[in-house]
Amino acid sequence: MLPAGAGTGTVLDRVSFVVDAGSTTGLIGESGSGKTMSAMSIVGLLPPGAETAGRIAWKSEDLLTAAARRIRQVRGREIGVIFQDPLAALNPIETIGKQVGEILRRGGMPRQQVRARVLELLDRVGIPEPEQRIDVYPHELSGGMRQRVMIATALAGEPQLIIADEPTTALDVTTQARILRLLADLRDREGVAMLLVSHDLRVMAHVADVVVVMYAGRVAERGPAREVLEHPRHPYTRALAHNVPAVSTKSAIAEPLQGAPANPFDRPAGCAFHPRCPMAQDRCRTDVPVLREVEPGRFSACHFAERVES
């Protein structure tokens, strides 16, 4: 629950997904679908005044009810976060070396050792000549380099899970591809689990093993990435996938997504997607569809999931 102006609203409603070790789970949705909020809730980085209910299982504990002290231990050292816009997410007046090494320094590692480790991290994320870059400021680097610094920062505490919130949105297309390759490499080489938040289906198609499609703060569809993107079992996923020809196998007639995304503070009754859904029936306007297993491993929150054609 979030306070919104005069009232409050349920921004996330029965959102549920699992991130497996060594695999990448993708959260897809339009802006306002609650994907970033879902991801940030894991490490407790919610807007002030947010109320929460449910469970965030991290290994054997529940992070939602954990003490603030424990959450801070988890942040950075067990779960790292990569933010959307690296220029805004890096402190403009500190050198990148200091920012990448902050977790280590605060963890009590001696200065010389921190420096050596930071150089190693910068090298690992593909920053050429780290010796020359370690003492520069964020504004002296290109967007792609800054995002690599951000990734190095997230890796410094050797987390087992990395949350990447739109890691390529602020970058140009060629840089996007390089950063995605880097993220995929890190997952493959180091077995880091990744929760990737993006509105970009091409990004998902490249990197994600499992995708969770979100709409208006609810999960619309969930399943193995390739299957979900190629054979959607929810009209919303289908509409999204059709907008990206590279993803859909059949280049069927593009069905542009009409209308504005539903506002979680003022969610339509029944299925939140019904005002924009070409398949909407009377039932969709009244009954909230439950996320159900429509095929082994495939979950959809559509009353007519079986009838969705890809």
């Binding site: 980085l45 942040r75 933010f83 805004a88 997410a89 402190n91 500190e94 902050e102």
Partner: peptide
Amino acid sequence: EAFVQTARSKGLTETQVLTGHVVKN
């Protein structure tokens, strides 16, 4: 600013976030 959230994501306490990142900025 977004970098304040980054500082929190590193596990810093609010006091450390303030003294380490906010005040100087």
